[in-house]
Nucleic acid binder design. Structure first.
Length: 470
DNA sequence: TGAAATGTTGGGGCG
DNA sequence: ACGCCCCAACATTTC
């Protein structure tokens, strides 16, 4: 077909700062394409929450593309080859992804399609620094965050300026008989995901709106406020970053221009952690499967479905843990402070393998991201590269008292104990029966006793750790 | 981006 | 005034 190209959307579901789209705009017509390819792990094993987000993103993207988005299901190479041959296409563009199997698949696709005498170009739209570019002085990759970020990223080329949406775009929709992707959440109602619709708008416009809202409000208190889950001091843009409704280049630039001092530095370094996770994923492709510190292979993890389930459902008897796990279940999101506290509790106090937690978060988080999720779980567990040491164990009582001292967050997610005064709400099991009664709590019935003794389980974790460390 | 155990210091009460 | 004890506050070490 005369001067028509394919713009293959993947984790860049936006029109703003989209280099592949900018290249595509040089042609007269663009076939916008998305392929749900179950040969790839990210679609085969897609988490439920993430799947909901993806579908809604596709719907909003489709509107931005004048309702011309072609959504296919099947093998990527086969689907693209078919279109290229049927439509006689000469140009194919996409923005890069960094999952190991996606990299392998893209390499094959690029080679095979080029053999059809087609121009194939890939671009960077989701990482500020390509994982293969950042190297230490000995020519190998960084394994510790601070030197990676400060001596690697920050002294390397600054992230490019974000690109504006091309002015003139003409999109083309193929025959509908090819549109064989079946929406899961549109046809059938899922009670669990329905509530997301009230909280989250997945569109590109909302991404920008939410981020600007953060810049104008929470950003001035970010450095301290980010630790307090009841404050509105974090950006909550992670799901948008994952599917690409907002560009990290846009985020980097806006934060640099509008934030100040330590708030800015800390926020930018959090973007740096995202980069570091991808850097680790690139260099340790099985980061979601294997301990990076192999001595942890010897650790005797506790296999206990019952305890695991109570953790998942937020019924551990430790209010701050339960509040975090219920935030996750109810909103598809969890504040970072709570991610650390709840993860520490699973891995160290329950002594359950971090993979179990990683899987649960993968399923429940709207921002589920292979690199960030795996790297962060390994960080908390102490099994990762540049991880928190295993003996760093969060105390769920004092963490609550420090970071939710007025129990605003706890009360929001645990209405059944909301009537307890601040003095007792962190430790219901130590509370006088009359006070419990006044608060309408029948301990063991309306709210559980702790499923594990904190200080004993702490000692058990330290012992287990000592055993493997000699 | 911890917590607990242990060590040290200094002020106040008191004989 | 002095030594002694207690203990809170802070610092250091350990896991």
């Amino acid at each position: 077909m005369e001067d028509t190209c394919i713009c293959w959307f993947r984790k860049d579901l936006r029109l703003d700062d989209n280099p592949a789209l900018v290249e595509a705009a040089k042609h007269k017509k663009i076939i916008p394409l998305f392929i749900f390819d179950k040969c790839l792990e990210e679609y085969k094993d897609i988490g439920l929450a993430s799947h909901w987000w993806l579908e809604n993103s596709l719907i909003s993207l489709n509107i931005g593309l004048d309702k011309k988005l072609n959504i296919l299901e099947g093998n990527s190479l086969a689907s693209i080859t078919k279109i290229i041959k049927e439509q006689n296409i000469k140009y194919l563009y996409w923005n890069r992804c960094y999952e190991p199997d996606r990299i392998a698949s893209d390499t094959i696709i690029k080679k095979s399609i080029k053999e059809l005498d087609v121009v194939v170009k890939s671009f960077n739209s989701s990482l500020l620094w390509e994982p293969w570019r950042i190297k230490n002085k000995s020519g190998s990759f960084y394994k510790v965050f601070t030197p990676f970020y400060k001596k690697g990223c920050l002294v390397s080329d600054a992230p490019r300026k974000p690109l504006d949406k091309p002015e003139k775009l003409f999109f083309l929709k193929l025959n509908t008989e090819n549109q064989n992707y079946h929406f899961k959440f549109q046809n059938k109602k899922y009670k669990w995901s329905e509530k997301f619709e009230k909280i989250w708008n997945t569109s590109e416009t909302s991404a920008r709106k939410n981020f600007n809202n953060f810049l104008n409000n929470g950003a001035s208190d970010y450095n301290e406020g980010r630790n307090f889950p009841s404050k509105n001091s974090v950006s909550r843009i992670s799901p948008y970053l994952h599917w690409g409704q907002i560009s990290p280049f846009r985020v980097w630039q806006d934060a640099k221009n509008k934030m100040q001092g330590l708030h800015k530095e800390t926020f930018l370094s959090e973007l740096g952690w995202r980069e570091f996770s991808y850097h680790l994923l690139y260099h340790y492709p099985d980061i979601n499967k294997k301990n990076l510190k192999i001595q942890f292979d010897k650790l005797q993890w506790n296999v206990n479905e019952k305890l695991l389930l109570k953790w998942k459902k937020g019924k551990t008897g430790y209010p701050i843990i339960d509040a975090g796990m219920r935030e996750l279940w109810q909103t598809g999101y969890m504040h970072n402070r709570l991610r650390m506290i709840t993860a520490s509790f699973l891995v160290k106090n329950l002594l359950i393998h971090w993979k179990e937690g990683e899987k649960w978060f993968w399923d429940c988080l709207l921002d589920a991201d292979l690199a960030s999720n795996s790297a962060s779980w390994q960080w908390v567990a102490g099994t990762g590269s540049d991880a928190a040491p295993f003996f760093r164990i969060f105390n769920p009582i004092t963490q609550g008292q420090k970071f939710d001292k007025d129990a605003i967050y706890i009360r929001k997610y645990l209405p059944e104990i909301a009537k307890l005064p601040n003095k007792f709400i962190f430790t219901p099991w130590l509370t006088d029966k009359t006070i419990l009664k006044e608060a309408g709590i029948n301990l063991g019935v309306s709210y559980p006793y702790p499923i594990i003794d904190y200080s004993l389980s702490r000692k058990r974790a330290l012992d287990a750790f000592k055993k493997i460390s000699n």
